[in-house]
Structures are given as structure tokens and as C-alpha cells.
Simulated assay, not measured.
Amino acid sequence: MLRRSLAILLVPALIAAPATAELLAPPAELAPIPVALLVDVNSGRTLYSREPDRRFLPASTTKVMTAFVAFEEIAAGRLASDRQFIVSDPTARQWNGRGTSMYLKAGDRVSTDDLLHGIATASANDASIVLAESYAGDVPRWCAMMNRAAAMLGMTGSRFATPNGWPDQGATYVTARDLVTLGEATITRHPQLYRTYFGQKRMTWNGVELISHDPTVGVVRGADGIKTGHTNEAGYNFLGSAERDGRRLVMVVAGAKTEADRASSSRALLEWGFAEWHDRPLFASGKAVAKAAVQAGDAREVPLVTHRAIAATLARGETGPITLTVHYRGPLVAPIAKDAQVAELEIRAGDAPSSRLPLFAGQAVAKAGPLDRLVNGVMGWFS
């Protein structure tokens, strides 16, 4: 098959000032932060980047991958939110009160829903272990699920050897680029579950109020998560996100020396992203962007749709034009499942590096039967 590219749109940006994104100064609060990344989800454009591929210890931001794996299992119908688990005596003895905790005791009956609230809000180390052991059989099997999910998402710079981020001599590590990928996937693949479990400031378990350390929720307008992390070795980390008027940003700061530095840099980076950049809407979620040719199917082409609102992101004062190109390896070969990712949309705004977003089959295409092959052959003569 051949790699096919289709230029579908050329839009001159309606901005006349001779400015570029490179002229935008980042927030001063980022000065002491060794790793930082800010991405606009609607366009895939990187708005700010510092050491995005540097490996670091994630601490409790690891728990986002534990939540993501659980979300995938829930979506597949293999894990019910009301499923009950019983806390084992060894787990309770090892993890009750160890770091941030739900203080689970041996014999406690706790649901998937309770555990996910504990993981996302209270950053509960014991909840992560109970979910991993109870569902997968043991922690290594759960970590294997985490690493398979990371590979599926293309997180090539990360590895997970713990469900909760407890120090493990560097066996668990991530990059900012991979954490942003994980955050985007958690939000876009499981929007309802994300809203249910992330972005909550407090929860109550057995009469005890547990508080989130998220530095942005309730402070930055539109902030709704995602997860902090801290150990002495890792420093203070944060994977965060905020949405305003349909525009979604995801960010990472890592290796901050103090909790105050983490808070101020995270808030400043999100506010800078909303104030200094704007989105030019292109396609609503679910809309067809283009069509791809299909071989040996009961249809000769399939619509390519987006599962998110798509925009081009421009800096304040940045000039265009905006160019969109669809890429796919084609013709696509039937059968094709509905919602299978089959193409990418490349977005280029001005002279900035381009970004790519996934496109999905808007309908199923079955293998062609004898009549379909006859009709397609005839149509081919006239196309």
C-alpha cells in the first residue's frame, strides 16, 4: 500500500501583525522548573516545551496510568464500578497509612468506585495496591497491563513497575511528552469517567475527609485535574489540565523543588496558554474531515471523522496560513471497523512545526461480496 496525503484546506489566518510564536516569553514562574510542557489538545500543538523527553521519576502521577487501565477495563465491560474487593491482611499491614492513604483495614469491603476516588482525589497508595492485586491477581500482572497500555498509546519513554509511584530505585520512569499523551488519552477516550473521578478537591471515606493536593482546581478557571506527585527523589510534579469554552490544555511540570514552585508554575503556565494563544475552530467532534479510498470493501470509500473538536492554535500576533493535510496508508483494505483509527490530520499554522491528530473510520466497511465487487468494478471504469 502507498502512503497517501490529501491537502484538504488552506486557510489564511486573519491576523496581519508580523509576529511569531517564538517571540512569546514564557511565564517567569517557570524559571526554576527543570521539565515543563504545555499542549493544546484541540490542535495537538506544543505551546511550550522544556526537556519534554527527559526521563524522570513520576511519583504519584503514576496513578494516572492505574486509573487509565481501570477506565479501559470498565469501558470494555470487564470491570464494574460497583464490584466489591476485600482488603487482604498483608496489604493492609504494608500500606495502611503509608504515605497518602485511605487507611484501608484488613477485611474492608471497598468498591471499584471507592478505590478510583481514593486514587484520583486522595492519591491513596493503599487503594492503588488493592485495585492492582484484587483485579489482576498481583502487582506485577497489573504493571504489565500498565506497560501494555503505555505501548498502545505510544509512550515510548516510560516504564511502570509500581501502581502507585512509591520509590522503586528508578524502575518506574516517565517523560513529560508521555504524561501529556496519557492525560489526553484519559480525557478523550473516557470523558465521563474522567469527569467523575478527577478534579475533585475532597472525598470522605469512613468518616475521614481526604484532601486533594491539586494546585489548580478551584484556582484556575476551567481546571479539572489531573494529578500531583511528590517524593524526596522525584521532587514536586504535576500533570494538569483545564478547559475553557471548549478549548483544552494539558500540561506537565516536574522536578520542582518546593510545593509552592509547583503550584505557581502550574497556574502561570495554564493562564499563559489561555491568554497568549487562541484556537481557530476547524471541525466539531464527530464531523467528517475527508474520505479515504477503500479496497475490497462493500463501499469504495469511508468517511474520516474526528473524536474531538479540532482547531488550529495561533499565538497572539502570529500570522498564518493554516494548512491541513490528511495522511493514511491506502487504499484502506476492508474489513474496517467503525471508529478504528485509520488516518491522521496534519495541522500546520504558519511556520510552526506541524502537529498530527488521529482520524477514525466514520462507518464500518465489510469485505465486498460478489455483487459489491461487480458494482465497484463498474464504478471504477467511470471514476
Rank of each mutant, 00 (worst) to 15 (best):
H213E: 05
F283D: 05
Q169W: 08
V365T: 02
E346T: 14
V250R: 01
A171R: 15
S5I: 04
W95E: 08
M152H: 15
A80W: 02
S60L: 06
G107A: 11
L2G: 03
E133S: 07
A67Q: 09
G118L: 10
D178R: 03
R348F: 05
S43Y: 11
R348E: 11
R45L: 08
L6M: 02
V11Q: 12
R329G: 01
V294A: 11
E29Q: 14
R280K: 11
G199W: 10
Y103R: 11
T66I: 08
V333R: 14
I347G: 00
M203F: 05
L116R: 05
E233I: 11
G118W: 10
G246N: 09
L104H: 13
P215M: 08
K367F: 02
D138S: 14
E73N: 12
L23P: 00
L14N: 12
L115R: 06
A136H: 07
L357W: 06
G240M: 10
E318D: 13
F85C: 11
A144H: 10
T121M: 00
I74R: 09
N125Y: 10
E133V: 10
R78E: 06
S128F: 03
D138W: 04
L249G: 04
G235A: 07
T20N: 09
F71C: 07
V305W: 06
E184W: 01
A256C: 15
R55L: 04
L269G: 13
S43R: 02
L179Y: 02
F68I: 00
L153W: 13
Y197T: 04
D261C: 02
M251G: 00
T258P: 09
C143R: 10
V302H: 01
L371I: 14
A28T: 03
R50E: 00
D108G: 11
D126Y: 07
M251P: 02
L57E: 10
P18K: 14
L47Y: 10
L131D: 10
L79D: 04
P321R: 08
A122M: 11
T258C: 09
I322P: 09
V220A: 01
G199S: 08
K257E: 09
S49C: 01
V130P: 09
G229C: 06
E73F: 06
D138F: 04
L357A: 05
L314N: 12
V39L: 04
D372I: 07
G255L: 04
L57D: 05
L314P: 07
Y194N: 06
Y48V: 00
P18G: 01
G157N: 13
T231C: 13
F85V: 11
